[in-house]
Write a protein that binds this DNA or RNA. Structure first.
Lengths: 71, 71
DNA sequence: GCTCGATGTCAAAAATATCTTACACGCCGC
DNA sequence: GCGGCGTGTAAGATATTTTTGACATCGAGC
């Protein structure tokens, strides 16, 4: 599986700013697996638009406040 | 292929507002196939975060100005 | 020491997105 | 009529994301 996608994210920071929310807790809140959270945080792949929306909504910010585009 | 995802989009409107840009032209600009553009416009599936970024950048707007979340 | 929670790794399967190709239809200009 | 363009549909193949489950490590607390 190939290349790291040109997408940056601040999921980990936001998680910590949100009262030490754990990966498991975030995963449960957005309805995905802990594996998925780990992979996204590590930039192994970029999430679907749906997951991106859910994540940003959990933190109460916009998508572009969480994910960045290195184009 | 199951259910239509809870994601709305204004790709078609934006395309028309952008000087009658055709599906093919948009597809070429964002580096995907015309099929993909059609499927996204029809809401058959939600694009990847990467495609979403590319699309919104073509139109010079933010992701949330193109895609909406019906959560 | 032991257990627990949080994090990470690995690997395979399932689900979803994307590509390729081909065909069909309506509209417009020639 | 015919050709080109824009749009839509369909099927199969490939790629990517997501899930599942098992196991390893580290730090804190008992």
């Amino acid at each position: 599986m190939g290349k790291p996608p040109p997408i940056t994210n601040r999921v980990r920071e936001l998680r910590e700013e949100h009262g030490q929310m754990s990966q498991s807790a975030l995963a449960k809140e957005i309805g995905v697996t802990r594996q998925t959270v780990i992979a996204i945080e590590q930039g192994r792949y970029s999430p679907s638009l749906e997951s991106a929306f859910k994540i940003s909504r959990v933190f109460g910010v916009g998508i572009e406040d969480v994910f960045g585009w290195v184009g």
